[in-house]
């Protein structure tokens, strides 16, 4: 792609992929419909809603919302189980799968490649963890090795930098329409796996020994959860990239933990936070890049909004802790819980 070398202001907003020229065409048409001046003074409504009337933005929004809900719900379990390290491992392990898939089948090979790599990694990591064989160092070494294999595979291609960037940082704005359904499907499988085992996963997270004593298989529960995390990573790898997906898995769960101490509220809170943050992230990126001419990469903008949202909730939590909640002490609920509950709209 010769056009990539003379990079324009929309360069990282449109990560290099084979579809980029088509998407540029869409944008060019859009610019033609709207006078430049109107874009320059993009209103809030335009950024939050109007932006998504453009087909590629609508597609990005649908995919990001599905991903946000699933990652939010799976992320709560990741948080409660303290599986951040294994999640990080899975994000690395998926990379060579993406690279090989791309080398073999083009963009259509991405999803199958990632899925195979992720499920393999989920099985291997679960087994290493359960058997108590691998130290963290060993896992880290294996995963860096797989990552470098991925980079080597990608480097064989003709658009090395572009492909690498797309795999690492995603291509949420240039997802071909045909890939939307497979992404939603992968996310749905992850959600179903977690939903079916939810009670037992929570039991194991709270009391691993009690859960085993009750007859639940720790290995199978771990495999299902790691598999679900792997599938989220697969879905996210094509959208916000393998490096940034960790934010989607970790931040909503952490936010939910700050916002409420009620078990069943954690999941809707995490899913809602992730959805709103994903939507805002896309809108901010669009407004910045197209409206204000500030070049914002989509995936990173979304992650930045996630982290900013976390910071806000952290601040809210701190303030709520300081203020306390006088009514709560009467009803016997501790101040922290009650006041936080109020901020997330939890009913009494």
């Amino acid at each position: 792609m010769a056009s990539r070398s003379n990079s324009t202001s929309t360069r990282s907003w449109f990560p290099a992929t084979r579809d980029i020229d088509a998407e540029r065409g869409i944008l060019a048409r859009d610019r033609a419909w709207h006078p430049v001046g109107e874009w320059r003074t993009m209103s809030l409504v335009d950024a939050l809603f109007g932006a998504f009337t453009v087909p590629f933005m609508a597609r990005a929004l649908v995919v990001m919302l599905v991903l946000a809900v699933v990652a939010g719900i799976v992320g709560v379990l990741v948080n409660l189980r303290g599986l951040e390290f294994i999640s990080d491992g899975l994000t690395h392990a998926v990379f060579p799968g993406l690279a090989i898939g791309l080398a073999v089948g083009g963009t259509a090979g991405l999803l199958p490649g990632a899925a195979i790599a992720a499920m393999t990694a989920a099985v291997v990591l679960t087994w290493l963890d359960r058997a108590g064989i691998a130290s963290d160092a060993a896992i880290a070494i294996v995963l860096t090795a797989t990552f470098s294999v991925g980079v080597i595979v990608v480097s064989r291609g003709d658009d090395y930098a572009g492909e690498l960037e797309a795999l690492l940082f995603g291509r949420v704005l240039t997802i071909p329409p045909a890939e939307v359904l497979p992404l939603v499907g992968v996310s749905a499988v992850a959600l179903a796996a977690v939903a079916v085992t939810m009670k037992q996963q929570l039991f194991r997270a709270f009391d691993a020994r009690g859960s085993r004593a009750a007859g639940d298989s720790a290995s199978w529960l771990d495999l299902v959860l790691n598999g679900a995390v792997a599938l989220v990573v697969v879905a996210a790898a094509s959208t916000i990239g393998t490096l940034l997906v960790l934010a989607l898995l970790i931040v909503p769960g952490a936010v939910a933990r700050l916002a409420t101490q009620r078990l069943w509220l954690l999941f809707p809170v995490a899913a809602l936070f992730a959805s709103v943050a994903a939507w805002l992230g896309l809108a901010v990126g669009f407004a910045g890049s197209v409206g204000a001419g500030i070049d914002l990469p989509a995936g990173s903008t979304i992650v930045a909004v996630f982290v900013a949202g976390y910071a806000l909730v952290l601040l809210g939590r701190w303030i709520a802790d300081r203020l306390g909640h006088p009514r709560a002490t009467e009803s016997g609920t501790p101040p922290v819980t009650a006041s936080l509950a109020a901020t997330v709209g939890e009913g009494r």
Partner: peptide, 22 residues
Amino acid sequence: FPISLEQVVMQGRYRRLGFLRW
């Protein structure tokens, strides 16, 4: 761990409920 006393006690019923029933 964000869990209420009655939710902990309910864990005692999970074995009977299995995976699909609530």
